[in-house]
Design a binder for these strands. Structure first.
Lengths: 351, 351
DNA sequence: CTGAAAGCGCTTACAG
DNA sequence: CTGAAAGCGCTTACAG
């Protein structure tokens, strides 16, 4: 690396003080009442010497880095990479950049990620929190560090957040399945105590109850995150190979669960929607290319990302006349839409 | 935000100098020959006061941020988000974090992204360069700024890079199609002069020539990046609705092209592999769920990401006894594998 | 209109 | 064994 040119180099080159250069380059010539010719000369040599301001120095001075830290479960999961893209664009509009990290649903990783990002002085965090991270987040709150949770939340933590109405989304999915004639519904979810997932499970049970659909031992099946492939394979094997008493439909709680589940269904030559009805949360190219396009619950990554950044910006770029305080908290619950396609026999009914 | 505790606060609290605190917290007590009891007291109060070092200050001092900038076409494209995940993990092993940005294949965006990241003092860049960015990159080289290109490259630019053997991959794909009995092959590629894409096209033509397969006006069809959906739809419409003289197979140059193409094929109730043989570059969940699992050319995102970081680390963490200079350049060409599945009639032949 | 100076939080040769 | 001091590149009140 060749030595970078600094404000000092420009000042020396012109025989003026660094202050002058700084004022001009920050367009504060009026405040400092710098002469217009001088200003022009400074700007010219800055360009000529290919001066690039050192944001690190500026950050040390200002205490702000204009950087947002993004922590998700796994950046390679399309749900999160789509959100990341939206956040990138929104942040960019506000002149912020984004550092990211993947927690793998692991509380320790999350903790070290949060610390690493804070040491790097990110101005704020956007977090899809993993299980058992309430304490880390409470500490952040306590320190009044700005952050907003996405996708997930905690009951015991009063914090900014954006999420869908998980309970209702599940509830409606079950209603939809029932309306299409399915009765023995199996929900495949993650084995976790994260409230957003619990809400999905409870919405499921609530709807089953209201519809007076009997529960079976297979009604709720749970997979771990770490061994999703093996777990879902085992679940599907157990349920599908039992010809006598098997579910007639599945509600998958995430795209990854669905993709793993569908692979098992395919292996067994079971036909959707005739043998099995299917609904999944999230989107996936795979859902479009499954021979019977999947009915799914759409979580708008666009809205989640945009709103998360908006909430943060409101907090960071506080106007003088603001009424809210650091202790106020914004929680946005986005209405998730059920997108009916063909995997619950929608096409048949119409015929 | 509550005031952060600094090294100075600890020093004041203990009535010692900041230097002492700094030495101890950096485990340089021996060099500074600090007393073990003193060291212990310092460590204790640091923990007690929940001290977090300010990396910004450290960076200003050292000139290093231990941050890598990653510029891809679009972080929400699974190919790139998979690479991003690998890079994140590899960087993390070396105590680096990653800032990312999406260029949307746009040279101006790329330029402003590069500048923004350099202003933020990233130590190095990993770039999947867009068209018309040679000049920006040449400037980087000239300034001896460390970077490595992934996926793409430029003939006129001598720079670090990791990519697959694009020419050969295409070449083999055509051979595979021909072996399966397809003759009227159409390659659907991006309309760009980026060499990696040109290589794919040339590999295609070379194989066609060697196999003495006649070219048609539809042999190479090109889509823009910005309007991929419309362009591919138009291409497929023109080709597939012409019953008399239409291709009997497609080679898609990327996953996005394939996904858009397959949707059009599905609409027309054409059957793969009977009516059409298909091969695509890249991977996708969609390829697995297409009724006829796609034969594809696997670009190992794992290897691309790992090698990119490795090359960078070699350059950044230069050992004293190193022989290479800043002007040396590493270009790694990874062998891409053709993964035969069913979309070229592989199963049929065997029966 | 312009410059000297302090300071952001840290590191590190240097002097005692 | 320990501390005073300079410096990383910038900003900004303050003095002239």
């Amino acid at each position: 690396m060749q030595k970078k040119v600094s404000i000092k180099d420009i000042a020396k080159h012109l025989g003026v003080s660094t202050a002058l250069v700084s004022y001009v380059l920050n367009n504060k010539e009026k405040e400092a009442r710098v002469g217009p010719e001088m200003a022009e000369r400074i700007r010219a040599t800055a360009k000529e010497m290919n001066y690039q301001p050192n944001m690190i120095a500026r950050s040390l001075q200002s205490g702000k880095t204009r950087t947002i830290g993004l922590i998700v479960a796994d950046i390679s999961n399309p749900f999160f990479s789509n959100i990341a893209r939206v956040i990138e664009d929104e942040a960019s509009l506000n002149n912020y950049t984004v550092i990211f990290g993947s927690s793998d649903e692991n509380a320790e990783k999350s903790d070290s990620l949060i610390n690493a990002l804070i040491k790097r002085q990110v101005d704020a965090l956007i977090i899809a929190p993993a299980e058992h991270t309430e304490e880390q987040l409470k500490l952040l709150r306590q320190q009044k560090f700005p952050f907003v949770l996405i996708d997930r939340y905690f009951n015991t933590l009063d914090a900014n957040g954006v999420r869908i109405n998980n309970f209702l989304a599940s509830y409606k999915a079950v209603q939809h399945l029932a309306k299409q004639g399915y009765k023995k519904i199996c929900m495949v979810a993650y084995q976790t105590r994260l409230p957003h997932m619990q809400d999905r499970k409870q919405g499921f049970f609530k709807a089953m109850e209201e519809l007076k659909l009997p529960l079976h031992e297979f009604s709720l099946m749970e997979s771990s995150y770490e061994r999703i492939q093996e777990d879902v394979a085992a679940i599907m094997q157990r349920l599908l190979d039992n010809k006598k008493d098997r579910p007639d439909s599945f509600l998958f709680a995430t795209n990854s669960l669905a993709i793993n589940g569908l692979k098992e269904i395919n292996k067994r030559k079971l036909s959707v929607p005739d043998d099995l009805g299917i609904i999944s949360f999230d989107e996936s190219d795979a859902f479009d290319f499954f021979y019977c396009p999947l009915t799914y619950i759409n979580q708008s990554t666009e809205r989640i990302g945009k709103e998360a950044v908006r909430i943060l910006m409101n907090q960071l770029e506080e106007k003088p006349g603001k009424t809210s305080t650091d202790s106020d908290t914004t929680q946005l619950v986005i209405d998730a839409q059920l997108i009916p396609r063909e995997s619950c026999g929608e096409k048949k009914k119409k015929r």
